Amino acid sequence: MMFNDIINDIWKNYRGRLLCSLFGLFIGAVVLWLGFFQALFLMLCIGVGFFIGTKLDHKEDLLEWLDRLLPPGYHR
């Protein structure tokens, strides 16, 4: 019972620091495991995937977005 109270108190007061520290640990481990540029490429791919997933979640049309991004007549 007391352990749960301590964990809840830590989560309530230090959530941002805890999550960002764990994220930093993860990023550091990936850089050590893959190397800097491979880790950078992996994070770029994750970011693009997250962006596309967000567009799909919001039911946005990806072809319309690509039409705005690419020059006119690019995909014909």
Rank of each mutant, 00 (worst) to 15 (best):
2 M>K: 06
3 F>E: 10
3 F>A: 07
3 F>V: 11
3 F>N: 09
4 N>M: 09
4 N>E: 12
5 D>F: 13
5 D>N: 13
6 I>H: 12
6 I>Q: 12
7 I>D: 06
8 N>L: 13
8 N>T: 13
8 N>Q: 15
9 D>I: 08
10 I>C: 08
10 I>Y: 14
10 I>E: 08
11 W>E: 15
11 W>G: 13
12 K>L: 10
13 N>D: 12
13 N>Q: 10
14 Y>G: 07
14 Y>D: 11
14 Y>H: 15
14 Y>L: 12
14 Y>I: 10
15 R>K: 12
15 R>W: 06
15 R>T: 12
15 R>M: 12
15 R>S: 13
16 G>S: 10
17 R>T: 08
19 L>G: 14
20 C>G: 15
20 C>F: 15
20 C>I: 15
22 L>I: 13
22 L>S: 12
22 L>E: 14
22 L>K: 10
23 F>N: 15
24 G>M: 13
24 G>H: 08
24 G>R: 10
24 G>L: 10
24 G>Y: 11
25 L>V: 08
25 L>C: 09
25 L>P: 05
26 F>Y: 08
26 F>W: 08
26 F>S: 05
26 F>D: 05
26 F>N: 04
26 F>L: 07
27 I>M: 07
27 I>L: 07
28 G>L: 02
28 G>Q: 03
28 G>F: 02
28 G>T: 01
29 A>E: 07
29 A>G: 06
29 A>D: 05
29 A>S: 09
30 V>D: 00
30 V>Q: 01
31 V>S: 02
31 V>A: 03
31 V>R: 01
32 L>R: 02
33 W>A: 03
33 W>C: 04
34 L>K: 03
34 L>V: 00
36 F>H: 03
36 F>E: 02
36 F>N: 03
36 F>I: 03
36 F>M: 05
36 F>A: 04
36 F>K: 05
37 F>C: 00
37 F>N: 00
37 F>K: 01
38 Q>A: 06
39 A>F: 02
39 A>R: 00
40 L>H: 04
41 F>Q: 04
41 F>P: 03
41 F>V: 05
42 L>A: 04
42 L>W: 01
43 M>P: 00
43 M>L: 02
43 M>N: 02
43 M>F: 05
